[in-house]
């Protein structure tokens, strides 16, 4: 496991994103999110469907602009990238893997084209023959062998798992420092997931890529993640080392999640089973306070009014909960 250390490669501070649809309805997809990614770690952003994970990814990728807060990549404000070369540099440094490999590959392009094109755009490899070699090497590294055969495959000739490997190779093609992987295995057959997770671990270990790994499956988060960020309805309610969060959850929402896993022993399985998936909760009216307020067994009056601040626990573990804050305050005095 990699401990977070040094200067963060990516920092989100008080980032919010509100979608307005129509005149009256607003969706606070991301609320006051703060976290840091340190070089070479794999951080899992876990949360049920609709909790704002993809929106967070889109904000990082500058596909959306945040309503407030700042996102910094190596100190550089992502919202203030000016000029073509700044954009290009960012695109080269930060890549994304999409959830649905059936949608993320252009049906008319061969695997070889899809993987080689980013190299061509960024001139990272000068000659076409060198580029072909690099593509073949990547194909081999993502286990699409024999590579010369896969080079010419069109997406419809590939299985879901193979497509996702092509998508991963595309993300790796420009040798990025950071990859945002938005639920890269959730659309794949359970039996294929371990292989993809292995590939991500390998890319971190051998190429030193930092990952923000988004998932709604606790087991894969536990398996692959150095740290875990738990997201619920736009807020990050708990964060810490993967073991600490899974074995000693502190936020009432995280506790409820982990207690709800039908076979806790499967949490060790590395995402090869489907029964550690976080269930979706019924939606409650938006409130200025903690989004878990209505369902929380230990909520206090203040929970409905205000968003709690972070309470630091041991190590890197911290929680956003008035109840935890009060309990710790009580212990100290």
């Amino acid at each position: 496991m990699t401990e977070p250390e040094g200067v963060p490669i990516l920092s989100l501070t008080h980032v919010s994103k509100t979608f307005f649809s129509g005149r009256r309805s607003r969706i606070d997809a991301v609320r006051d999110v703060t976290f840091h990614l340190y070089p070479h770690e794999i951080v899992c952003l876990v949360g049920e469907s609709g909790s704002g994970k993809s929106t967070t990814a889109h904000l990082i990728m500058a596909m959306e602009t945040s309503t407030s807060g700042t996102i910094r990549y190596q100190g550089q404000d992502v919202a203030r990238l000016r000029g073509r070369s700044a954009h290009r540099q960012y695109r080269r440094a930060v890549q994304m893997i999409f959830q649905d490999p059936y949608a993320s590959l252009n049906p008319v392009h061969t695997a070889g084209y899809t993987i080689g094109r980013p190299m061509e755009i960024h001139h990272s490899i000068a000659s076409a023959s060198q580029r072909n070699k690099a593509v073949l090497r990547l194909l081999r590294q993502v286990d699409l062998t024999p590579p010369a055969e896969f080079y010419y495959k069109l997406p419809y000739q590939l299985s879901g798992g193979q497509r996702q490997r092509v998508a991963i190779a595309r993300a790796l093609a420009v040798q990025p420092a950071l990859i945002i992987a938005d639920e890269p295995v959730s659309m794949l057959d359970v039996s294929l997931r371990a292989g993809i997770l292995q590939l991500i671990l390998q890319a971190r270990d051998e190429a030193g890529v930092t990952f923000l790994y988004i998932t709604h499956d606790l087991a894969s988060a536990r398996y692959i993640g150095d740290r875990i960020l738990v997201m619920y309805r736009g807020i990050i309610c708990e964060e810490g080392m993967a073991d600490a969060v899974i074995n000693g959850p502190q936020h009432p929402y995280t506790k409820a999640l982990i207690e709800a896993v039908p076979n806790p022993e499967h949490l060790e399985d590395g995402g090869t089973v489907d029964d550690t998936v976080i269930p979706s909760h019924p939606s409650a009216p938006a409130s200025p306070g903690c989004p878990y307020y209505a369902l929380c067994p230990v909520s206090v009056a203040e929970c409905q009014q205000n968003l709690p601040d972070w309470t630091e626990l041991s190590g890197k573990h911290r929680v956003r909960c008035f109840h935890v804050a009060d309990a710790r305050h009580g212990v100290k005095t």
Partner: peptide, 26 residues
């Protein structure tokens, strides 16, 4: 709106590049 167009944009493809290489062939 398709993911592959977004993906091309994220690899740094220009607007004209996307029209020419991602949209036209389809």
């Amino acid at each position: 709106k398709r993911d592959f167009v977004q993906a091309a944009r994220l690899t740094g493809e220009s607007t004209w590049g996307i029209v020419q290489r991602e949209l036209f062939p389809n």
